[in-house]
Design a protein around this nucleic acid. Sequence first.
DNA 1: CCGTGAAATACTGTATACGGTGTTCAGAAC
DNA 2: GTTCTGAACACCGTATACAGTATTTCACGG
Lengths: 242, 242
Amino acid sequence: MQTPVHQTPALEVVDPPKLKVEPLEAASSLRMLAYEALKRAITQMDIYGSTTEFRLDERQLSETLGVSRTPIREAMTVLEQEGFVRSVPRRGIFVVRKTKREILDLIVVWAALEAMAARLAATHASDSEIAGLRRLFHEFEAQPLASHMNEYSEANIAFHQAVIRMGGCRLIVDMTENLFLHMRAIRAVSVRQENRHEISMREHMAIIDALETRDPDLAERLVREHTMGLAAHVERHGVFPE
Amino acid sequence: MQTPVHQTPALEVVDPPKLKVEPLEAASSLRMLAYEALKRAITQMDIYGSTTEFRLDERQLSETLGVSRTPIREAMTVLEQEGFVRSVPRRGIFVVRKTKREILDLIVVWAALEAMAARLAATHASDSEIAGLRRLFHEFEAQPLASHMNEYSEANIAFHQAVIRMGGCRLIVDMTENLFLHMRAIRAVSVRQENRHEISMREHMAIIDALETRDPDLAERLVREHTMGLAAHVERHGVFPE
DNA sequence: CCGTGAAATACTGTATACGGTGTTCAGAAC
DNA sequence: GTTCTGAACACCGTATACAGTATTTCACGG
Protein backbone atom coordinates (compact mmCIF):
# COMPACT_ATOMS: atom_id res chain seq x y z
CA MET A 1 0.00 0.00 0.00
CA GLN A 2 2.99 2.26 0.53
CA THR A 3 4.12 1.76 -3.06
CA PRO A 4 2.71 4.40 -5.41
CA VAL A 5 0.54 2.94 -8.12
CA HIS A 6 2.41 4.48 -11.05
CA GLN A 7 5.54 2.49 -10.23
CA THR A 8 3.74 -0.72 -11.13
CA PRO A 9 3.07 -0.94 -14.86
CA ALA A 10 -0.42 -2.24 -15.47
CA LEU A 11 0.59 -5.01 -17.80
CA GLU A 12 3.45 -6.34 -15.74
CA VAL A 13 2.34 -9.18 -13.53
CA VAL A 14 4.45 -9.21 -10.39
CA ASP A 15 4.40 -11.70 -7.58
CA PRO A 16 2.86 -10.22 -4.46
CA PRO A 17 5.34 -9.75 -1.58
CA LYS A 18 4.01 -12.89 0.16
CA LEU A 19 3.33 -11.49 3.59
CA LYS A 20 2.24 -14.88 4.94
CA VAL A 21 -0.08 -13.58 7.61
CA GLU A 22 -1.16 -16.18 10.11
CA PRO A 23 -4.83 -17.08 10.12
CA LEU A 24 -4.72 -16.08 13.80
CA GLU A 25 -8.46 -16.48 14.16
CA ALA A 26 -8.19 -19.99 15.57
CA ALA A 27 -10.17 -20.85 18.69
CA SER A 28 -11.37 -17.34 19.19
CA SER A 29 -14.53 -17.66 21.20
CA LEU A 30 -15.04 -19.26 24.56
CA ARG A 31 -17.99 -21.04 23.06
CA MET A 32 -15.67 -22.80 20.62
CA LEU A 33 -13.23 -23.58 23.39
CA ALA A 34 -15.96 -25.06 25.55
CA TYR A 35 -17.28 -27.02 22.57
CA GLU A 36 -13.92 -28.56 21.82
CA ALA A 37 -13.17 -29.31 25.45
CA LEU A 38 -16.53 -30.96 26.02
CA LYS A 39 -16.40 -32.91 22.78
CA ARG A 40 -12.95 -34.20 23.61
CA ALA A 41 -14.06 -35.14 27.11
CA ILE A 42 -17.16 -36.93 25.85
CA THR A 43 -15.47 -38.87 23.06
CA GLN A 44 -12.63 -39.91 25.31
CA MET A 45 -14.75 -41.26 28.14
CA ASP A 46 -15.78 -44.88 27.96
CA ILE A 47 -19.54 -44.47 27.74
CA TYR A 48 -20.37 -48.07 27.08
CA GLY A 49 -18.15 -49.42 29.83
CA SER A 50 -20.71 -49.01 32.58
CA THR A 51 -24.47 -48.72 32.74
CA THR A 52 -24.63 -45.65 34.96
CA GLU A 53 -25.88 -42.55 33.21
CA PHE A 54 -23.45 -39.70 32.79
CA ARG A 55 -25.05 -36.42 33.74
CA LEU A 56 -23.39 -33.12 32.92
CA ASP A 57 -24.01 -30.23 35.25
CA GLU A 58 -23.84 -26.81 33.63
CA ARG A 59 -22.89 -25.03 36.81
CA GLN A 60 -20.17 -27.48 37.71
CA LEU A 61 -18.74 -27.34 34.20
CA SER A 62 -18.75 -23.56 34.19
CA GLU A 63 -16.80 -23.55 37.44
CA THR A 64 -14.36 -26.19 36.20
CA LEU A 65 -13.71 -24.46 32.90
CA GLY A 66 -13.72 -21.01 34.43
CA VAL A 67 -16.39 -19.58 32.17
CA SER A 68 -20.02 -18.72 32.67
CA ARG A 69 -22.94 -20.96 31.78
CA THR A 70 -23.64 -19.17 28.50
CA PRO A 71 -20.77 -20.58 26.40
CA ILE A 72 -21.36 -23.98 28.01
CA ARG A 73 -24.99 -23.92 26.99
CA GLU A 74 -24.19 -22.87 23.43
CA ALA A 75 -21.62 -25.65 23.16
CA MET A 76 -24.17 -28.10 24.53
CA THR A 77 -26.68 -27.00 21.91
CA VAL A 78 -24.23 -27.94 19.17
CA LEU A 79 -23.30 -31.22 20.84
CA GLU A 80 -26.96 -32.11 21.17
CA GLN A 81 -27.45 -31.37 17.49
CA GLU A 82 -24.56 -33.69 16.68
CA GLY A 83 -26.09 -36.44 18.79
CA PHE A 84 -23.48 -36.62 21.54
CA VAL A 85 -25.61 -35.39 24.41
CA ARG A 86 -29.30 -35.17 25.11
CA SER A 87 -30.90 -32.43 27.14
CA VAL A 88 -33.92 -33.52 29.18
CA PRO A 89 -35.94 -30.48 30.29
CA ARG A 90 -35.64 -30.64 34.07
CA ARG A 91 -33.41 -33.64 34.54
CA GLY A 92 -30.14 -32.44 33.13
CA ILE A 93 -27.89 -33.09 30.18
CA PHE A 94 -26.89 -36.70 29.57
CA VAL A 95 -24.22 -38.25 27.42
CA VAL A 96 -26.12 -40.36 24.93
CA ARG A 97 -25.62 -44.06 24.75
CA LYS A 98 -26.67 -45.23 21.32
CA THR A 99 -28.99 -48.18 21.06
CA LYS A 100 -28.10 -51.13 18.86
CA ARG A 101 -30.62 -49.93 16.29
CA GLU A 102 -29.04 -46.46 16.20
CA ILE A 103 -25.55 -47.88 15.86
CA LEU A 104 -26.67 -50.02 12.95
CA ASP A 105 -28.17 -46.91 11.36
CA LEU A 106 -24.87 -45.11 11.78
CA ILE A 107 -23.04 -47.92 10.04
CA VAL A 108 -25.58 -47.99 7.21
CA VAL A 109 -25.17 -44.27 6.60
CA TRP A 110 -21.43 -44.68 6.77
CA ALA A 111 -21.63 -47.46 4.17
CA ALA A 112 -23.80 -45.36 1.87
CA LEU A 113 -21.56 -42.30 2.01
CA GLU A 114 -18.26 -44.13 1.74
CA ALA A 115 -19.57 -46.28 -1.12
CA MET A 116 -20.43 -43.10 -3.01
CA ALA A 117 -17.06 -41.59 -2.15
CA ALA A 118 -15.32 -44.72 -3.46
CA ARG A 119 -17.28 -44.46 -6.69
CA LEU A 120 -16.21 -40.86 -7.12
CA ALA A 121 -12.65 -41.65 -6.14
CA ALA A 122 -12.40 -44.37 -8.78
CA THR A 123 -12.96 -41.81 -11.51
CA HIS A 124 -11.67 -38.55 -10.04
CA ALA A 125 -8.81 -39.36 -7.68
CA SER A 126 -5.28 -38.88 -8.93
CA ASP A 127 -2.86 -41.78 -9.31
CA SER A 128 -0.69 -40.38 -6.55
CA GLU A 129 -3.63 -40.29 -4.15
CA ILE A 130 -4.39 -43.95 -4.78
CA ALA A 131 -0.71 -44.75 -4.39
CA GLY A 132 -0.83 -42.93 -1.07
CA LEU A 133 -3.71 -45.10 0.05
CA ARG A 134 -1.74 -48.23 -0.74
CA ARG A 135 1.21 -46.84 1.17
CA LEU A 136 -1.08 -46.13 4.13
CA PHE A 137 -2.32 -49.69 3.95
CA HIS A 138 1.18 -51.12 4.10
CA GLU A 139 2.01 -48.95 7.09
CA PHE A 140 -0.90 -50.60 8.89
CA GLU A 141 0.39 -54.05 8.09
CA ALA A 142 3.73 -53.14 9.61
CA GLN A 143 2.08 -52.02 12.85
CA PRO A 144 1.69 -54.42 15.78
CA LEU A 145 -1.44 -56.50 15.38
CA ALA A 146 -3.08 -55.36 18.58
CA SER A 147 -3.36 -51.77 17.39
CA HIS A 148 -5.61 -52.57 14.44
CA MET A 149 -7.50 -55.60 15.52
CA ASN A 150 -11.03 -54.34 15.20
CA GLU A 151 -13.22 -52.23 12.98
CA TYR A 152 -13.00 -49.19 15.22
CA SER A 153 -9.23 -48.99 15.53
CA GLU A 154 -7.50 -45.77 14.58
CA ALA A 155 -5.72 -47.48 11.72
CA ASN A 156 -8.91 -48.86 10.27
CA ILE A 157 -10.75 -45.58 10.59
CA ALA A 158 -7.84 -43.75 8.99
CA PHE A 159 -8.08 -46.03 5.97
CA HIS A 160 -11.77 -45.37 5.52
CA GLN A 161 -11.37 -41.64 6.02
CA ALA A 162 -8.65 -41.64 3.37
CA VAL A 163 -11.01 -43.31 0.90
CA ILE A 164 -13.70 -40.78 1.75
CA ARG A 165 -11.36 -37.84 1.28
CA MET A 166 -10.33 -39.18 -2.11
CA GLY A 167 -13.93 -38.94 -3.24
CA GLY A 168 -13.48 -35.19 -3.35
CA CYS A 169 -16.91 -34.45 -1.90
CA ARG A 170 -16.37 -32.08 0.96
CA LEU A 171 -19.85 -32.60 2.40
CA ILE A 172 -19.32 -36.36 2.68
CA VAL A 173 -16.03 -35.76 4.48
CA ASP A 174 -17.68 -33.43 6.97
CA MET A 175 -20.70 -35.63 7.57
CA THR A 176 -18.68 -38.78 8.20
CA GLU A 177 -16.34 -37.01 10.62
CA ASN A 178 -18.85 -37.08 13.45
CA LEU A 179 -19.96 -40.52 12.35
CA PHE A 180 -16.51 -41.92 13.03
CA LEU A 181 -16.36 -40.08 16.33
CA HIS A 182 -19.44 -42.03 17.36
CA MET A 183 -17.83 -45.20 16.05
CA ARG A 184 -14.78 -44.67 18.21
CA ALA A 185 -16.96 -44.47 21.28
CA ILE A 186 -18.33 -47.96 20.78
CA ARG A 187 -15.06 -49.69 20.04
CA ALA A 188 -14.89 -50.82 23.65
CA VAL A 189 -17.84 -53.16 23.21
CA SER A 190 -16.91 -54.19 19.70
CA VAL A 191 -16.71 -57.90 19.35
CA ARG A 192 -13.57 -59.45 18.03
CA GLN A 193 -13.68 -62.50 15.92
CA GLU A 194 -10.46 -64.32 15.17
CA ASN A 195 -10.54 -64.33 11.39
CA ARG A 196 -12.38 -61.04 11.00
CA HIS A 197 -9.30 -58.89 11.05
CA GLU A 198 -7.68 -60.94 8.32
CA ILE A 199 -10.80 -60.78 6.16
CA SER A 200 -11.01 -57.05 6.74
CA MET A 201 -7.48 -56.48 5.52
CA ARG A 202 -8.10 -58.57 2.41
CA GLU A 203 -11.19 -56.51 1.66
CA HIS A 204 -9.24 -53.30 2.08
CA MET A 205 -6.70 -54.58 -0.40
CA ALA A 206 -9.47 -55.44 -2.87
CA ILE A 207 -10.85 -51.91 -2.53
CA ILE A 208 -7.47 -50.43 -3.38
CA ASP A 209 -7.21 -52.72 -6.37
CA ALA A 210 -10.61 -51.60 -7.62
CA LEU A 211 -9.59 -47.96 -7.29
CA GLU A 212 -6.35 -48.61 -9.17
CA THR A 213 -8.17 -50.29 -12.02
CA ARG A 214 -10.57 -47.32 -12.05
CA ASP A 215 -13.65 -49.45 -11.62
CA PRO A 216 -16.34 -47.30 -9.96
CA ASP A 217 -18.98 -50.03 -9.75
CA LEU A 218 -16.63 -52.54 -8.20
CA ALA A 219 -15.12 -50.00 -5.79
CA GLU A 220 -18.55 -48.93 -4.63
CA ARG A 221 -19.78 -52.50 -4.20
CA LEU A 222 -16.69 -53.61 -2.29
CA VAL A 223 -16.82 -50.66 0.09
CA ARG A 224 -20.53 -51.10 0.66
CA GLU A 225 -20.28 -54.84 1.27
CA HIS A 226 -17.27 -54.35 3.52
CA THR A 227 -19.05 -51.89 5.79
CA MET A 228 -22.41 -53.62 5.63
CA GLY A 229 -20.58 -56.75 6.64
CA LEU A 230 -19.62 -54.94 9.81
CA ALA A 231 -23.28 -54.01 10.29
CA ALA A 232 -24.27 -57.66 10.01
CA HIS A 233 -21.52 -58.59 12.43
CA VAL A 234 -22.72 -56.05 14.98
CA GLU A 235 -26.30 -57.15 14.42
CA ARG A 236 -25.40 -60.74 15.28
CA HIS A 237 -22.73 -60.40 17.94
CA GLY A 238 -22.93 -56.86 19.24
CA VAL A 239 -23.89 -56.51 22.85
CA PHE A 240 -25.38 -53.15 23.71
CA PRO A 241 -27.52 -51.95 26.57
CA GLU A 242 -31.28 -51.66 25.99
CA MET B 1 -54.25 -44.14 42.26
CA GLN B 2 -57.43 -43.83 44.31
CA THR B 3 -58.26 -47.50 43.82
CA PRO B 4 -56.79 -49.70 46.56
CA VAL B 5 -54.38 -52.25 45.20
CA HIS B 6 -56.09 -55.27 46.76
CA GLN B 7 -59.23 -54.71 44.70
CA THR B 8 -57.31 -55.53 41.54
CA PRO B 9 -56.36 -59.21 41.43
CA ALA B 10 -52.78 -59.59 40.26
CA LEU B 11 -53.54 -62.02 37.48
CA GLU B 12 -56.50 -60.18 36.03
CA VAL B 13 -55.51 -57.83 33.23
CA VAL B 14 -57.92 -54.93 33.06
CA ASP B 15 -58.04 -52.18 30.45
CA PRO B 16 -56.97 -48.85 31.92
CA PRO B 17 -59.66 -46.12 31.95
CA LYS B 18 -58.20 -44.50 28.80
CA LEU B 19 -57.84 -40.92 29.95
CA LYS B 20 -56.49 -39.81 26.57
CA VAL B 21 -54.37 -36.96 27.82
CA GLU B 22 -52.96 -34.70 25.16
CA PRO B 23 -49.21 -34.82 24.63
CA LEU B 24 -49.27 -31.09 25.41
CA GLU B 25 -45.48 -30.87 25.53
CA ALA B 26 -45.19 -29.72 21.93
CA ALA B 27 -42.94 -26.76 21.18
CA SER B 28 -42.61 -25.84 24.80
CA SER B 29 -39.50 -23.70 24.90
CA LEU B 30 -39.11 -20.29 23.35
CA ARG B 31 -35.88 -21.53 21.88
CA MET B 32 -37.79 -24.14 19.89
CA LEU B 33 -40.41 -21.60 18.90
CA ALA B 34 -37.76 -19.19 17.68
CA TYR B 35 -36.00 -22.00 15.84
CA GLU B 36 -39.13 -23.06 14.01
CA ALA B 37 -40.15 -19.50 13.19
CA LEU B 38 -36.72 -18.62 11.85
CA LYS B 39 -36.36 -21.85 9.89
CA ARG B 40 -39.75 -21.31 8.30
CA ALA B 41 -38.89 -17.73 7.46
CA ILE B 42 -35.53 -18.67 5.96
CA THR B 43 -36.78 -21.59 3.88
CA GLN B 44 -39.72 -19.61 2.59
CA MET B 45 -37.77 -16.59 1.43
CA ASP B 46 -36.41 -16.64 -2.08
CA ILE B 47 -32.70 -16.48 -1.34
CA TYR B 48 -31.48 -17.03 -4.85
CA GLY B 49 -33.83 -14.50 -6.39
CA SER B 50 -31.59 -11.53 -5.74
CA THR B 51 -27.92 -11.02 -5.11
CA THR B 52 -28.23 -8.82 -2.04
CA GLU B 53 -27.13 -10.48 1.16
CA PHE B 54 -29.74 -11.14 3.78
CA ARG B 55 -28.52 -10.10 7.19
CA LEU B 56 -30.35 -11.09 10.33
CA ASP B 57 -30.26 -8.73 13.27
CA GLU B 58 -30.56 -10.39 16.67
CA ARG B 59 -31.98 -7.32 18.35
CA GLN B 60 -34.52 -6.65 15.66
CA LEU B 61 -35.62 -10.29 15.67
CA SER B 62 -35.95 -10.33 19.44
CA GLU B 63 -38.20 -7.28 19.27
CA THR B 64 -40.25 -8.71 16.42
CA LEU B 65 -40.73 -12.10 18.09
CA GLY B 66 -41.18 -10.58 21.52
CA VAL B 67 -38.45 -12.62 23.19
CA SER B 68 -34.97 -11.80 24.38
CA ARG B 69 -31.80 -12.39 22.41
CA THR B 70 -30.94 -15.59 24.26
CA PRO B 71 -33.48 -17.93 22.59
CA ILE B 72 -32.73 -16.24 19.26
CA ARG B 73 -29.05 -16.91 19.66
CA GLU B 74 -29.61 -20.54 20.61
CA ALA B 75 -31.88 -21.04 17.62
CA MET B 76 -29.24 -19.41 15.40
CA THR B 77 -26.62 -21.80 16.72
CA VAL B 78 -28.70 -24.74 15.56
CA LEU B 79 -29.50 -23.14 12.22
CA GLU B 80 -25.82 -22.46 11.66
CA GLN B 81 -25.07 -26.11 12.43
CA GLU B 82 -27.64 -27.12 9.85
CA GLY B 83 -26.09 -24.86 7.26
CA PHE B 84 -28.92 -22.38 6.85
CA VAL B 85 -27.17 -19.32 8.27
CA ARG B 86 -23.61 -18.32 8.80
CA SER B 87 -22.42 -16.15 11.64
CA VAL B 88 -19.52 -13.88 10.79
CA PRO B 89 -17.81 -12.61 13.98
CA ARG B 90 -18.38 -8.87 13.75
CA ARG B 91 -20.47 -8.58 10.62
CA GLY B 92 -23.67 -10.27 11.59
CA ILE B 93 -25.62 -13.39 10.74
CA PHE B 94 -26.26 -14.05 7.08
CA VAL B 95 -28.59 -16.43 5.30
CA VAL B 96 -26.28 -18.71 3.35
CA ARG B 97 -26.43 -18.89 -0.38
CA LYS B 98 -24.94 -22.19 -1.43
CA THR B 99 -22.33 -22.19 -4.13
CA LYS B 100 -22.70 -24.43 -7.15
CA ARG B 101 -20.07 -26.77 -5.71
CA GLU B 102 -21.97 -27.04 -2.42
CA ILE B 103 -25.25 -27.70 -4.18
CA LEU B 104 -23.65 -30.46 -6.19
CA ASP B 105 -22.30 -31.93 -2.96
CA LEU B 106 -25.79 -31.85 -1.48
CA ILE B 107 -27.16 -33.74 -4.46
CA VAL B 108 -24.36 -36.30 -4.29
CA VAL B 109 -25.08 -36.99 -0.62
CA TRP B 110 -28.77 -37.18 -1.41
CA ALA B 111 -28.03 -39.73 -4.16
CA ALA B 112 -25.86 -41.81 -1.84
CA LEU B 113 -28.39 -41.93 0.97
CA GLU B 114 -31.46 -42.50 -1.16
CA ALA B 115 -29.67 -45.20 -3.17
CA MET B 116 -28.94 -47.04 0.06
CA ALA B 117 -32.51 -46.52 1.24
CA ALA B 118 -33.81 -47.95 -2.03
CA ARG B 119 -31.56 -50.98 -1.61
CA LEU B 120 -32.93 -51.54 1.88
CA ALA B 121 -36.49 -50.91 0.74
CA ALA B 122 -36.21 -53.53 -2.00
CA THR B 123 -35.64 -56.22 0.59
CA HIS B 124 -37.37 -54.94 3.71
CA ALA B 125 -40.35 -52.85 2.64
CA SER B 126 -43.78 -54.46 2.77
CA ASP B 127 -45.84 -55.01 -0.35
CA SER B 128 -48.41 -52.51 0.82
CA GLU B 129 -45.74 -49.83 1.21
CA ILE B 130 -44.58 -50.35 -2.34
CA ALA B 131 -48.16 -50.31 -3.51
CA GLY B 132 -48.58 -47.02 -1.67
CA LEU B 133 -45.62 -45.59 -3.55
CA ARG B 134 -47.19 -46.53 -6.86
CA ARG B 135 -50.44 -44.91 -5.75
CA LEU B 136 -48.52 -41.76 -4.82
CA PHE B 137 -46.93 -41.77 -8.25
CA HIS B 138 -50.28 -41.96 -10.01
CA GLU B 139 -51.61 -39.10 -7.93
CA PHE B 140 -48.77 -36.99 -9.27
CA GLU B 141 -49.61 -37.88 -12.84
CA ALA B 142 -53.15 -36.72 -12.24
CA GLN B 143 -51.97 -33.33 -10.98
CA PRO B 144 -51.63 -30.37 -13.32
CA LEU B 145 -48.30 -30.43 -15.09
CA ALA B 146 -47.12 -27.11 -13.79
CA SER B 147 -47.09 -28.31 -10.21
CA HIS B 148 -44.49 -31.00 -10.77
CA MET B 149 -42.42 -29.67 -13.58
CA ASN B 150 -39.01 -29.68 -12.01
CA GLU B 151 -36.81 -31.70 -9.72
CA TYR B 152 -37.52 -29.54 -6.70
CA SER B 153 -41.30 -29.59 -6.83
CA GLU B 154 -43.23 -30.74 -3.79
CA ALA B 155 -44.57 -33.73 -5.68
CA ASN B 156 -41.12 -34.85 -6.76
CA ILE B 157 -39.63 -34.39 -3.31
CA ALA B 158 -42.54 -36.29 -1.78
CA PHE B 159 -41.78 -39.24 -4.03
CA HIS B 160 -38.14 -39.34 -3.02
CA GLN B 161 -38.95 -38.93 0.64
CA ALA B 162 -41.37 -41.83 0.39
CA VAL B 163 -38.63 -44.05 -1.05
CA ILE B 164 -36.29 -42.96 1.73
CA ARG B 165 -38.85 -43.69 4.43
CA MET B 166 -39.41 -47.15 2.98
CA GLY B 167 -35.75 -47.93 3.57
CA GLY B 168 -36.55 -48.13 7.25
CA CYS B 169 -33.39 -46.37 8.33
CA ARG B 170 -34.41 -43.58 10.65
CA LEU B 171 -31.06 -41.80 10.46
CA ILE B 172 -31.24 -41.54 6.68
CA VAL B 173 -34.73 -40.08 6.95
CA ASP B 174 -33.57 -37.46 9.43
CA MET B 175 -30.42 -36.54 7.54
CA THR B 176 -32.18 -36.08 4.22
CA GLU B 177 -34.91 -33.93 5.75
CA ASN B 178 -32.69 -30.85 5.93
CA LEU B 179 -31.16 -31.80 2.61
CA PHE B 180 -34.51 -31.45 0.89
CA LEU B 181 -35.15 -28.20 2.72
CA HIS B 182 -32.02 -26.85 1.08
CA MET B 183 -33.18 -28.30 -2.24
CA ARG B 184 -36.47 -26.44 -2.00
CA ALA B 185 -34.63 -23.17 -1.60
CA ILE B 186 -32.91 -23.51 -4.95
CA ARG B 187 -35.93 -24.53 -6.97
CA ALA B 188 -36.30 -20.95 -8.10
CA VAL B 189 -33.13 -21.10 -10.15
CA SER B 190 -33.59 -24.66 -11.28
CA VAL B 191 -33.41 -24.98 -14.99
CA ARG B 192 -36.25 -26.57 -16.83
CA GLN B 193 -35.67 -28.63 -19.87
CA GLU B 194 -38.62 -29.66 -21.97
CA ASN B 195 -38.16 -33.42 -22.00
CA ARG B 196 -36.59 -33.68 -18.56
CA HIS B 197 -39.85 -33.93 -16.71
CA GLU B 198 -40.98 -36.78 -18.92
CA ILE B 199 -37.69 -38.61 -18.46
CA SER B 200 -37.89 -38.06 -14.72
CA MET B 201 -41.32 -39.63 -14.50
CA ARG B 202 -40.21 -42.64 -16.50
CA GLU B 203 -37.28 -43.10 -14.17
CA HIS B 204 -39.55 -42.91 -11.16
CA MET B 205 -41.68 -45.63 -12.67
CA ALA B 206 -38.64 -47.81 -13.28
CA ILE B 207 -37.64 -47.38 -9.63
CA ILE B 208 -41.05 -48.56 -8.49
CA ASP B 209 -40.78 -51.55 -10.82
CA ALA B 210 -37.41 -52.46 -9.37
CA LEU B 211 -38.80 -52.29 -5.84
CA GLU B 212 -41.76 -54.45 -6.81
CA THR B 213 -39.51 -57.09 -8.30
CA ARG B 214 -37.43 -56.93 -5.12
CA ASP B 215 -34.21 -56.17 -6.96
CA PRO B 216 -31.91 -54.29 -4.54
CA ASP B 217 -29.06 -53.81 -7.00
CA LEU B 218 -31.30 -52.46 -9.71
CA ALA B 219 -33.27 -50.23 -7.34
CA GLU B 220 -30.10 -48.75 -5.93
CA ARG B 221 -28.57 -48.17 -9.35
CA LEU B 222 -31.70 -46.55 -10.76
CA VAL B 223 -32.09 -44.20 -7.81
CA ARG B 224 -28.44 -43.25 -7.90
CA GLU B 225 -28.39 -42.65 -11.64
CA HIS B 226 -31.63 -40.70 -11.44
CA THR B 227 -30.32 -38.30 -8.80
CA MET B 228 -26.81 -38.12 -10.19
CA GLY B 229 -28.44 -37.25 -13.50
CA LEU B 230 -29.87 -34.21 -11.78
CA ALA B 231 -26.39 -33.39 -10.51
CA ALA B 232 -25.02 -33.54 -14.04
CA HIS B 233 -27.89 -31.39 -15.22
CA VAL B 234 -27.20 -28.75 -12.58
CA GLU B 235 -23.49 -28.96 -13.34
CA ARG B 236 -24.13 -28.14 -16.99
CA HIS B 237 -27.06 -25.75 -16.89
CA GLY B 238 -27.32 -24.47 -13.35
CA VAL B 239 -26.75 -20.79 -12.91
CA PHE B 240 -25.71 -19.85 -9.41
CA PRO B 241 -23.96 -16.82 -7.99
CA GLU B 242 -20.21 -17.01 -7.37
C1' DC C 1 -10.70 16.03 -3.88
C1' DC C 2 -8.92 12.08 -1.80
C1' DG C 3 -6.79 9.65 1.83
C1' DT C 4 -5.86 8.80 6.54
C1' DG C 5 -6.78 8.79 11.31
C1' DA C 6 -9.57 9.04 15.27
C1' DA C 7 -13.73 8.81 17.65
C1' DA C 8 -18.26 7.27 18.18
C1' DT C 9 -21.58 3.95 17.53
C1' DA C 10 -23.37 -0.44 17.21
C1' DC C 11 -23.26 -5.25 17.53
C1' DT C 12 -21.62 -9.50 19.30
C1' DG C 13 -19.96 -12.44 23.00
C1' DT C 14 -20.09 -13.27 27.88
C1' DA C 15 -21.69 -12.86 32.57
C1' DT C 16 -25.16 -12.81 35.89
C1' DA C 17 -29.62 -12.43 37.96
C1' DC C 18 -34.33 -14.05 38.35
C1' DG C 19 -38.48 -16.78 37.85
C1' DG C 20 -40.75 -21.14 37.29
C1' DT C 21 -41.04 -25.87 37.53
C1' DG C 22 -39.51 -30.44 38.60
C1' DT C 23 -37.58 -33.41 41.99
C1' DT C 24 -36.59 -35.06 46.25
C1' DC C 25 -36.86 -35.60 51.05
C1' DA C 26 -39.27 -35.61 55.24
C1' DG C 27 -43.22 -36.05 58.02
C1' DA C 28 -47.63 -37.72 58.93
C1' DA C 29 -51.37 -40.82 58.42
C1' DC C 30 -53.21 -45.19 57.46
C1' DG D 1 -43.88 -50.16 57.62
C1' DT D 2 -45.49 -48.07 53.58
C1' DT D 3 -47.49 -44.50 51.03
C1' DC D 4 -49.06 -39.97 50.09
C1' DT D 5 -48.64 -35.13 50.44
C1' DG D 6 -46.39 -30.85 51.02
C1' DA D 7 -42.58 -27.93 51.23
C1' DA D 8 -37.96 -26.78 50.23
C1' DC D 9 -34.24 -26.90 47.23
C1' DA D 10 -31.97 -27.04 43.01
C1' DC D 11 -31.55 -26.52 38.24
C1' DC D 12 -32.95 -24.96 33.70
C1' DG D 13 -34.70 -21.43 30.61
C1' DT D 14 -34.91 -16.62 29.79
C1' DA D 15 -33.88 -11.79 30.37
C1' DT D 16 -30.77 -8.19 30.78
C1' DA D 17 -26.58 -5.78 31.64
C1' DC D 18 -21.80 -5.05 30.45
C1' DA D 19 -17.46 -5.11 28.00
C1' DG D 20 -14.67 -5.40 23.96
C1' DT D 21 -13.96 -4.82 19.28
C1' DA D 22 -15.00 -3.82 14.52
C1' DT D 23 -16.98 -0.72 11.39
C1' DT D 24 -18.34 3.50 9.81
C1' DT D 25 -18.39 8.23 9.55
C1' DC D 26 -16.61 12.67 10.02
C1' DA D 27 -12.96 15.86 10.16
C1' DC D 28 -8.60 17.40 9.02
C1' DG D 29 -4.55 17.52 6.29
C1' DG D 30 -2.12 16.97 2.07
